[in-house]
Design a protein around this nucleic acid. Structure first.
Length: 331
DNA sequence: AACCTGATCAACCGCCCTTAC
DNA sequence: CGTAAGGGCGGTTGATCAGGT
């Protein structure tokens, strides 16, 4: 039969994560890096299954996550990509480095689907939104447009691959500048801090409703980790609770997210939020986990152009004659 | 003020793919 | 090659919140 649900065997805790659990998880990943999720619950004492830990990390705690308000640009990218890729949220998310697939999926289901429906059922078919106005084109036009888009994506992909090939041949580590993470316009300095902000917000909430002592986990492993975290958080401050909670200030998080290079067996540099205004996920400890490897993906520069330039629908004859069957091999 | 309803989003479930043995 | 386990992904659920009545 099927595998039992994650965590069933150990009676793992379910439901919303507490700030304390978040802290333990982040603290652990700070030390060991993401990956090997199976060992996370046992090593941290968290009463969560490995899958839950991974999900919590990738969808919420991971550095570089931007939350809330999607920009119109992001919205249009999602709509275009959804039309092209379908509900392949992870693939779509790879073009929006600051968003998680879960976030995009939720946004699609709650906002965009509704918005599209409204437009499609609307009498006028007109919208202030530039993209939606393009949805009213005839099916034939739309199909041709899609074919063109696919062809452009294919072209871009081959270019990206050729660059990768070149890089590997030359042994150059630097790189395909088209990689979304390497593009300053998208990988803004705030991305890393945003995770600290997430946790800061959590802790602020936690401060408002601090857990009662009785609610504290008694698991020895967790206690150990919590202590180590507290040591990190309270370093240089008084030992009072208030002192500990000073860790919720940005400065304290700077400290918290300053990685000790000695803790890492990889060559990432030790970094902190404040001294790296241009810090991006790719040079953080978490870089390899931050997003799927996009090394073979379409350069975002082209993708962006393709996605956002609604006037780029014109295409040479040969592009238009490309069949959808031809394009299926792309994906 | 109380209740209802819809919107939002974090988290879970189950399936599938990949990888190690 | 077959099997088991880990990890990734998309679909779905349920708790919470906001706005309306």
């Amino acid at each position: 039969m099927g595998r039992p649900p994650c965590g069933d065997k150990i009676g793992a805790k379910k439901g919303p994560w507490t700030p304390g659990e978040d802290i333990i998880l982040v603290s652990y990943i700070q030390e060991h890096g993401p990956g090997n999720w199976r060992s996370v619950p046992s090593n941290t004492g968290l009463l969560r299954c490995s899958k839950s830990c991974r999900l919590r990390w990738t969808n919420y705690l991971r550095p570089g996550i931007k939350r809330g308000n999607f920009t119109e640009q992001e919205e249009q990218m999602i709509i275009h990509l959804q039309a092209l890729l379908g509900n392949r949220w992870a693939a779509i998310a790879s073009y929006l480095p600051q968003r998680t697939d879960n976030d995009i999926k939720n946004y699609w289901n709650t906002h965009l689907k509704k918005k599209l429906k409204k437009v499609q059922t609307g009498v006028d078919g007109q919208s202030q939104d530039g993209f939606f106005s393009t949805q009213s084109v005839s099916k034939g036009q739309w199909e041709r447009r899609l074919q063109t888009d696919i062809r452009m994506a294919k072209q871009a992909l081959s270019e990206a691959l050729s660059i990768d090939k070149l890089n590997s041949l030359t042994g150059s580590k630097d790189i395909n500048l088209s990689h979304p993470y390497l593009r300053p316009s998208l990988s803004q300095g705030s991305t890393y801090a945003s995770s600290a902000e997430n946790i800061s917000r959590l802790l602020e909430n936690w401060m408002k409703n601090p857990p009662k002592p009785a609610a504290h986990q008694t698991n020895s492993g967790e206690t150990m980790t919590q202590n180590s975290f507290n040591n990190t958080m309270t370093a240089g401050s008084s030992s009072s609770d208030e002192g500990a909670f000073n860790a919720t200030t940005p400065e304290a998080f700077d400290s918290f997210f300053s990685f000790n290079s000695s803790n890492s067996d990889v060559s990432h540099e030790s970094v902190s939020v404040d001294q790296n205004a241009n810090l991006t996920p790719e040079n953080s400890l978490f870089q390899e986990e931050s997003k799927p490897n996009l090394g073979t993906q379409v350069p975002l520069t082209l993708i962006e152009k393709w996605l956002l330039d609604d006037s780029s629908a014109q295409a040479p004859e040969d592009l238009i004659t490309m069949t959808l069957e031809d394009s299926t091999g792309l994906f």
